[in-house]
């Protein structure tokens, strides 16, 4: 059976198509501003990590995470910061760190965990570390947190 018709972009013929950009509120910050924020975050995360404040570093990295189109560089920087925190946390500390996060931060962290799992071998992303965090985060925030990470179109 010919299945080529399934590949036709039917939205191209629909004047009133529902666009990706209508799925979420755009970031009020400009892309340059977002990038600047991400760079500043990276520095502050490093200094917090140096002090041994993992929870503070993670909360700071996850706050105001870049989302939406046109901010790929900021997204990469933030992912790097988050991954470096995740990698440097002792596995016994994870439950406490996860519990100390706000609901917003927990949801954002879940998005980064899934993003990391989708990029095996990117930077120093390690599957086993991410799975360890995923388990503890799900215990603390429930399956609802996973559902939100999948539902939210503000992809990080």
């Amino acid at each position: 059976m010919d299945t080529a018709f399934r590949k036709i972009d039917i939205d191209a013929y629909d004047e009133d198509a529902f666009l990706e950009s209508e799925l979420f509120e755009p970031d009020p910050r400009s892309p340059a501003h977002v990038l600047n924020d991400a760079k500043q975050k990276q520095t502050s995360v490093r200094s917090l990590l140096a002090k041994g404040d993992t929870a503070g570093a993670l909360a700071s990295a996850l706050e105001g995470a870049p989302y939406g189109p046109g901010v790929d560089e900021a997204k990469n920087l933030t992912l790097q910061s988050v991954v470096s925190i995740l990698n440097s946390t002792k596995s016994t500390e994870i439950p406490n760190v996860v519990r100390s996060l706000s609901q917003d931060a927990q949801d954002t962290l879940m998005k980064y965990l899934y993003k990391g799992m989708g990029l095996p071998g990117w930077g120093d992303v390690s599957g086993s570390v991410l799975l360890g965090w995923h388990e503890k985060l799900t215990e603390a925030a429930g399956t609802g947190c996973i559902v939100r990470a999948m539902t939210d179109r503000r992809t990080v």
Binding site: T143, G144, V147
Partner: peptide, 25 residues
Amino acid sequence: SHDSSVSIVYPGGPTIINVRMASLP
């Protein structure tokens, strides 16, 4: 909504109170 939350809207403000759940939607 499908993000596992219930929102309650008071139209005056409007104030939207969002209760996020740990379980499924």
